[in-house]
Design a binder for these strands. Structure first.
Lengths: 158, 158
DNA sequence: CTTATTGCAAAAGTTTTGCACTATA
DNA sequence: TATAGTGCAAAACTTTTGCAATAAG
């Protein structure tokens, strides 16, 4: 169980910035950790946290997520459905998981690739902007849905 | 002025799906077209539309954007600040503008690159998922903010 | 004791919905 | 005259904030 080492590191980051790792904050981290799926809405985090620490309040969850996000411990993601999702900062090995979102069935799958490093180098060279993270989503049609779509004339994309 | 041809095409798409190009919907499209900057919040679109058609209502703007989005005439974007942005479906030539978002000052600049085509080809080969669009955002620190940040030990990113 | 943190409830902000009215085929 | 579409206001939702109470150094 690497939970402890993760928590230790987070405690250090918090204390380095003058904050404490309170039971509530620890619970929020655990909620994110425990959940198999990685992208929880604030409400999801709240419910999960509530199970671990029944007295925790929703505002505290939001405040914890905000604080952890400012420390880059947590990433905030937007799926475009009106609510934010949160995930623990995945280690460098998971930095390159991107999402394939099917416009037909809505399925979200992951695709790993590190070709972005090239682009990031180019960005740095051309704009002096140093990339520390990125969010890449591809929209299109998954294999399954492509099979059921054979009506449109421009169906054979590129 | 290619506005008319754009509107004609949108009218066709609307009618093909059993809807009309009402003055309100036309105004929403014009608002998106006229605005130099491309990413308007719903409120922005509303204000712009209001200027063109004073009696238009906010709900109508939302409903128009929703409808146009369902026809892929409009794209809905999330910046992560709690409100959606909208842009007209940019032609293929503008398909590759990506965003550089500074974590320090929040500035959003654009970066154009087509290296994603390689990745998209790979995705298609490996997963049978056909990409029709993508959303790529890079997070990091812009030149200006990097200059003012020289405290953190790991400041010299990569 | 002094300050950070919390929970609750209220507030704020964005987006959606109900409904009567209007315009259009 | 049916039906899609609209404007207004209310409602719904997510997120933030004010504040008194609590916990921790």
């Amino acid at each position: 169980m690497k939970t402890n080492s993760i928590l230790r590191q987070i405690r250090e980051q918090l204390e380095a910035s003058g904050h404490r790792l309170t039971p509530q904050r620890e619970t929020v981290v655990k909620a994110l950790l425990q959940s198999g799926k990685r992208h929880l809405s604030a409400e999801n985090v709240f419910m999960e946290s509530k199970r671990l620490l029944p007295d925790i309040g929703l505002a505290t969850v939001y405040r914890s997520l905000e604080l952890l996000e400012s420390l880059n411990v947590v990433y905030k993601l937007e799926y475009g459905d009106g609510q934010s999702r949160y995930e623990l900062n995945p280690g460098s090995d998971e930095h390159y998981h991107h999402h394939l979102i099917c416009l037909e069935c809505g399925a979200i799958t992951e695709f790993n690739h590190d070709l972005l490093e090239e682009i990031e180098g180019k960005i740095r060279a051309e704009t002096q902007f140093v990339v520390t993270d990125h969010c890449l989503r591809f929209f299109g049609y998954c294999k399954k849905c492509r099979a059921s779509i054979d009506k449109s004339p421009e169906g054979s994309v590129t």
